[in-house]
Simulated scan of single mutants.
Amino acid sequence: MAIFDNIAKAAKDFFVEEDDAATKPAVTPPAQLASASSSQPLPSFSAGAQPEQRHLDHIAGLLTGDGKDFAAYMKMVKSMAAAGMSGPLLYQTAFNAFAAINGATVLGLLASAATFETALQSDRNKVLERHREKIGETKGSNIAPSVLLNLTGQEQKLALEIADLTRQLQEKQQQLTETQQQLTEERQKTQSALASYEAANASALSELQTHRKAAETFLAGSGAVK
């Protein structure tokens, strides 16, 4: 907004009057706010994660108010910070300008901030619960299984089938190995038997031929052959 830009440009020349400070509640410095909330557990998140635009839009919707709340005040603070202001002067100047526009009070702003924090925490709890349902950690009532849960079930089913096929393959591999061993033994036996027969046959044939030639020679020479 143009008025925010004008306020930011004039911020360095803006001084908070002591009378105003006495009549208006003091703004808690950021350091004190951080100290007061340091005992509360912070939500865990991946520091390297880049939020998607749809999530940024969703969060922006949660922080949308009537223009007189803490979300609008934060916009003014960031606008002035971009102009070079910082520290207590930044927050006090932003509050003075913000209050002059819509009559806001410190207590009202802080209550508004607490409301936004509660809304963010509540929304996060819902998202985390749905996330646990999606990954199968919890089971929601009357809620159809998510795509992730269906794929997880399919993955487990396929893994079991692969394990069973692997077991069957190992059994078949063992059977193949045993069969190959038996085949090798039978081939060796067959080859040994053939070699034995060949030796016996060759020996008998050689002996027969030797005696036949001798008989032909000796018997023919003696005139026994007619």
Results as ranks from 00 to 15, higher is better:
residue 6 N to L: 14
residue 31 A to K: 14
residue 62 L to D: 13
residue 74 M to L: 14
residue 17 E to W: 04
residue 50 Q to P: 07
residue 106 V to W: 06
residue 69 D to C: 08
residue 214 A to V: 03
residue 21 A to I: 00
residue 47 A to H: 04
residue 142 N to G: 01
residue 49 A to K: 04
residue 200 A to W: 03
residue 39 S to L: 06
residue 137 E to C: 03
residue 193 A to S: 01
residue 44 S to A: 11
residue 109 L to I: 00
residue 196 S to L: 04
residue 78 K to H: 14
residue 46 S to H: 04
residue 111 A to T: 11
residue 97 A to C: 03
residue 99 A to K: 04
residue 15 F to Q: 05
residue 179 T to M: 04
residue 25 P to E: 03
residue 178 E to N: 15
residue 216 E to M: 12
residue 210 T to R: 14
residue 203 S to Y: 15
residue 130 R to L: 02
residue 170 Q to T: 10
residue 157 K to M: 14
residue 151 L to E: 15
residue 81 A to K: 07
residue 184 T to E: 15
residue 172 K to N: 12
residue 195 A to E: 13
residue 163 A to E: 02
residue 83 A to M: 05
residue 114 A to R: 10
residue 123 D to T: 03
residue 205 L to K: 05
residue 138 T to C: 10
residue 155 E to H: 15
residue 102 N to F: 11
residue 117 E to K: 07
residue 165 L to Y: 05
residue 7 I to K: 07
residue 104 A to C: 00
residue 127 V to F: 09
residue 141 S to D: 06
residue 64 T to L: 08
residue 111 A to F: 05
residue 206 S to E: 06
residue 84 G to F: 02
residue 11 A to F: 08
residue 7 I to E: 00
residue 150 N to D: 11
residue 159 A to M: 10
residue 125 N to L: 15
residue 1 M to C: 01
residue 224 A to M: 09
residue 45 F to W: 08
residue 142 N to L: 04
residue 161 E to Y: 11
residue 166 T to M: 00
residue 27 V to S: 02
residue 19 D to E: 08
residue 198 E to W: 07
residue 64 T to D: 08
residue 211 H to K: 15
residue 155 E to W: 04
residue 24 K to Y: 02
residue 150 N to F: 15
residue 182 Q to N: 13
residue 4 F to Q: 14
residue 84 G to A: 07
residue 48 G to Q: 12
residue 16 V to I: 10
residue 152 T to P: 06
residue 188 Q to T: 08
residue 161 E to P: 07
residue 17 E to V: 12
residue 81 A to C: 04
residue 95 F to V: 04
residue 105 T to E: 12
residue 126 K to P: 00
residue 201 N to S: 05
residue 36 A to R: 01
residue 180 Q to A: 09
residue 177 T to N: 08
residue 215 A to T: 15
residue 155 E to K: 14
